[in-house]
């Protein structure tokens, strides 16, 4: 399989970032960037990256089972990750998460039937001083409230 020219350029550079013979170092970054483009770690992605880095399928499966951002199943177009760890919990993160479940009509690690939104309760996002925090894909949203959440979801829906 082939990736977009931008991603191919990134991959070429990435593989050169590791010592000769140790190109497996690029495995996790390549998987994550491939997932961002393809939508999930598909069989084809595993085969292609494995071939390029000379890494066996089982070595890739091992990694997939470990890192929480990597997924074999496509997530929603807007993947919503709400932190409920200590600083967010103290400032309303749990309430925000429950509100999100109701607003979207889905539970943790589920996807709306139209594929637009998926929801995940996550551990610390490193945004503790601006809690409660959440991410939509890679975009951070800080000092969230249920009202701000509704506005955000409504604006994302309008983007469709």
């Amino acid at each position: 399989m082939t990736f977009s020219p931008e991603l191919e350029a990134r991959f070429a550079k990435m593989i050169g970032n590791y010592p000769p013979g140790r190109q497996k170092g690029a495995l996790i970054p390549m998987l994550l960037y491939a997932q961002d483009e393809v939508g999930a770690i598909t069989d084809e992605v595993i085969e292609e990256i494995g071939r390029r880095l000379q890494v066996s399928r089982v070595e890739i499966e091992e990694v997939l089972g470990y890192y929480t951002m990597l997924t074999r199943e496509p997530r929603g177009k807007h993947h919503i990750q709400i932190c409920t760890n200590i600083s967010c919990m103290l400032t309303g993160g749990e309430e925000l998460f429950h509100h999100a479940c109701r607003k979207l009509g889905i539970g943790n690690r589920q996807k709306t039937p139209d594929g637009q939104f998926s929801l995940e309760e996550v551990e610390c996002l490193g945004a503790c001083s601006w809690a409660p925090a959440m991410q939509v894909n890679y975009d951070f949203h800080y000092q969230m409230t249920p009202e701000k959440f509704d506005q955000l979801i409504d604006s994302l829906r309008k983007l469709q």
Binding site: K24, G25, L32, L70, C124
Partner: peptide, 23 residues
Amino acid sequence: HTGAGSYECGEETALLESLEGKR
């Protein structure tokens, strides 16, 4: 070098394993 979701990788030797493309 991007991680991919793991608190444990903040520990220095786990981080090095991750840098080498492993769990």
